[in-house]
Measured scan of single mutants.
Amino acid sequence: GSLMYASIFGNVSAIIQRLYSGTARYHTQMLRVREFIRFHQIPNPLRQRLEEYFQHAWSYTNGIDMNAVLKGFPECLQADICLHLNRSLLQHCKPFRGATKGCLRALAMKFKTTHAPPGDTLVHAGDLLTALYFISRGSIEILRGDVVVAILGKNDIFGEPLNLYARPGKSNGDVRALTYCDLHKIHRDDLLEVLDMYPEFSDHFWSSLEITFNLRDTNMIPGSPGSTELEGGFSRQRKRKLSFRRRTDKDTEQPGEVSALGPGRAGAGPSSRGRPGGPWGESPSSGPSSPESSEDEGPGRSSSPLRLVPFSSPRPPGEPPGGEPLMEDCEKSSDTCNPLSGAFSGVSNIFSFWGDSRGRQYQELPRCPAPTPSLLNIPLSSPGRRPRGDVESRLDALQRQLNRLETRLSADMATVLQLLQRQMTLVPPAYSAVTTPGPGPTSTSPLLPVSPLPTLTLDSLSQVSQFMACEELPPGAPELPQEGPTRRLSLPGQLGALTSQPLHRHGSDPGS
């Protein structure tokens, strides 16, 4: 009898404990919600809404976190579960008819179910419309201010047509639940991603989709105040780019002037030289400038040598048109050559190039014969006009050509200096018209024969001689050997007369 009593008592207590286990969990969670309300000092109306929603959600799901349970299964099984949970929507909604099984599984994985109690606001006026909503159960109302403009029910759709707008718009009203509602919502990016994977279904979906109420604000059109608020930074940046392009296009129409201050000032006329910023005076940081632009901040801005204009002085008759350009485009679109090309026009420029290279940067340069637009006047290309890779490749080509020119210049200078040193070592320090008596009659020769300089066969020296023939050397430049009979510069000019005159010897006659 005691054994029977113990078994009955144990079973009854276990049954009672299981009955009250759900209630215990409910009270535990309710205590957490109330502690949250007390800690954050939530006001009474919002506090009442929180408690009511918790009670309804507990009775609806029995305190089970559906998302946590669903995430515990593998992905393939999750797709089947989501397809079952959203079967009513996918079967009865017209846009989803005719979709393949794979497309429906992908869509079912992207849908999220939302449960809303009465009085809950789903979308506020001015919120971004980031999702498309399908009503599965219940009814909602749409308000503009305090005026109800629409009441939607089961199988209705609200949001915005995503295929017509590249960016999400703003809501033009509040969406509030009238009863307990079940909503299926899919985010904008998720829907577009699935439709991109199934393009054959995309056309059918957009053609058959009928949005019951379009929440997009109709005033959000390009150029409206609301649109400016939504895309303020983007609009200002776009206007700045367009104004920069218009100014650079105007600059290219004036090829007669070359400016070292950047493309923003290349198009300024002579009357605007004294102004601080020219056409860019209202925004000094709008356009890029070269490193020399920092010198323009000092006094005497109108007389600054940074602004270059072609000189009108005539060229000498024998002067060549100019050196070879550094870039391939210089032959086609440049009416002034790079300062480095002028360094190779003569030997005198070679000796004085490194010492006063900055001073020569603004000297007169030889002109190319074609009066085409200036290379320095070409505006900086924006990322939309020329690819970045093209600019980098041009810079690399320019750097390689500069290296080759520097190597060639160093070799030419070394060769010229070597020839000058050899000339100085071969010439005796001094010569006299009267020579010392020699031991015999073989001493009648006034000077030792001097062998002429070897013929220069280097390509670089031939180019130097060509430049010497075309360029007029300055007075202080050293002379180079030329073709024809060679003669030492330090010898007297009348050596031929010395050989014809008898030598005057000093000596005593033994017979006297």
Rank of each mutant, 00 (worst) to 15 (best):
Q401K: 03
P222T: 10
G355W: 04
P291K: 11
F353T: 07
G262P: 08
P168F: 01
S293H: 13
G493H: 11
L458K: 13
K170D: 01
S381D: 05
P325V: 15
K185M: 14
S243K: 05
P320L: 15
Q363E: 09
Q482C: 10
D335C: 06
R386E: 09
S208L: 07
R307Y: 10
S345N: 08
P478V: 11
N214P: 01
G476K: 08
S432V: 11
E160M: 01
G440V: 13
A497I: 07
R301S: 10
R176W: 01
P441R: 09
S136T: 13
E364M: 14
D174C: 09
Q463C: 12
S393A: 13
L376R: 09
L420K: 05
E229Y: 07
A131Q: 10
A343G: 11
L380E: 10
L456I: 10
A477P: 10
E406F: 01
P291L: 10
T442L: 06
R273M: 05
A370R: 08
G322I: 12
S207K: 09
P371C: 08
H184R: 07
L132I: 06
E324Q: 07
L326G: 13
D203T: 13
G223E: 08
C181Y: 01
G476W: 15
A433E: 15
P439M: 09
F213I: 07
Y431E: 11
R137L: 04
F205Y: 03
L209K: 01
A497T: 10
R247D: 12
R307D: 06
E406H: 04
Q399A: 14
F311D: 14
P279A: 10
K154V: 10
A266S: 10
L209N: 03
G233V: 11
L152D: 01
R358L: 10
P270V: 13
E141Q: 09
D329V: 11
D249G: 08
T499R: 11
N163Y: 09
R273E: 11
G145E: 11
M468V: 07
G323A: 11
L503A: 10
I142K: 01
S243T: 10
L426N: 08
G511Q: 13
T455V: 09
L420S: 04
R301M: 12
F134P: 03
E297S: 11
A166L: 09
D329C: 07
A497V: 12
L164I: 11
C181S: 08
L128P: 07
M197W: 06
S348Y: 05
L215G: 03
T425N: 10
P199W: 03
L402P: 01
R176D: 01
R307V: 10
G256C: 12
N172D: 06
R360Y: 09
E160C: 01
Q401I: 05
P288A: 09
Q418L: 04
S283P: 10
S333N: 15
V427N: 04
R505S: 11
F467H: 14
S465L: 06
D412N: 07
F134E: 01
G355H: 07
P291Y: 15
E472P: 13
H184P: 01
A343P: 10
S334P: 13
E479V: 10
P474V: 09
S508Q: 06
L426M: 08
R301Y: 05
P339I: 13
Y180I: 04
G355S: 08
